[in-house]
């Protein structure tokens, strides 16, 4: 008997990753879309609110106490100063949530991935589909945030639109890394370790103040952290003053994405096939 399903899967034999990949990650996206359409979308849509609230509260409230900030590009308002950091941070948080807790939940609690993998989908379809969904969501949040930042008059150049792809790169880096680490997690208690790492990174990566308040060695450590790299990347993209340094930030994330995807793929069996 050769059914449609069988023909389709046979057609992929000998092609890239036929062991793990059916070439259909878009079906995982479709599933998320169907689920999203009928869900309490207010909870999803409002996801971009958090950085906006921080921007309003800190930018204008603390901004009044701080005055303007001197940057290489000249004096800017405190709100304009923190906007890219908030965008990078929310890209990180969203990506981490999607690639760690949500993956863990769908794997162990709702067993959604069990159902997907009982079909002719491969683990790589699932991983790519989930990452793509997270990035699309992150991209939409980033766009909303950037539009608000622009509407508040905090950007001065059309280059600021580049903040959107920059935020997506940041999200991609964290999502692929998060998934790789999740593949090593055995219980949901271990998942809390992410947060022990994420909170200090958020507080010290200089989203709210220049790193110069720290001693030199402290700055060096912080600059090696992914969130700091993300903040620099988004800041440079949003201001339109990239310089050669933006290549360092981008390379950092390319490495992070590749390493993350490498380990995720390597551990796919461990991740999805207990």
């Amino acid at each position: 008997m050769t059914t449609e399903a069988v023909q389709l899967s046979e057609r992929r034999l000998g092609k890239f990753g036929d062991k793990y990949f059916a070439g259909r990650p878009q079906q995982v996206l479709l599933r998320n879309w169907i689920s999203f359409k009928s869900s309490a979308w207010i909870a999803v849509v409002s996801g971009f609110l958090e950085p906006v609230l921080y921007l309003l509260s800190f930018g204008y409230g603390i901004g009044e106490l701080v005055g303007s900030i001197a940057t290489p590009g000249g004096e800017i308002s405190y709100a304009a100063y923190i906007a890219p950091g908030l965008l990078a941070t929310s890209a990180m948080n969203g990506a981490m949530l999607d690639s760690t807790w949500n993956v863990f939940f769908k794997l162990n609690e709702s067993r959604l991935y069990n159902a997907m993998l009982a079909t002719s989908l491969g683990p790589l379809d699932v991983a790519l589909g989930e990452i793509a969904w997270a990035l699309m969501r992150g991209g939409i949040y980033a766009t909303a945030f950037t539009v608000i930042v622009a509407a508040l008059g905090l950007v001065t150049t059309w280059w600021a639109l580049l903040a959107i792809p920059a935020a997506i790169i940041v999200a991609f880096g964290f999502a692929s890394f998060g998934m790789a680490i999740t593949s090593y997690m055995k219980s949901h208690h271990q998942m809390n370790f992410f947060y022990i790492f994420l909170l200090p990174m958020f507080l010290f990566s200089g989203a709210f103040y220049p790193l110069t308040v720290f001693p030199g060695w402290g700055q060096a450590i912080i600059k090696a952290l992914p969130l700091r790299q993300g903040i620099e990347l988004v800041t440079r993209a949003m201001s339109g003053e990239f310089g050669i340094h933006i290549l360092v930030n981008i390379s950092y994330f390319m490495v992070m994405i590749c390493v993350g995807l490498f380990f995720t793929t390597k551990r796919l069996n461990a991740l999805f096939m207990k």
Binding site: T3, V6, Y20, F21, S110, A118, T119
Partner: peptide, 17 residues
Amino acid sequence: NGPQIRAHLGVVPQQDN
């Protein structure tokens, strides 16, 4: 050949997923 084999299968797991 996981995907190719699963294309032939209909699976009802013990716990509904």
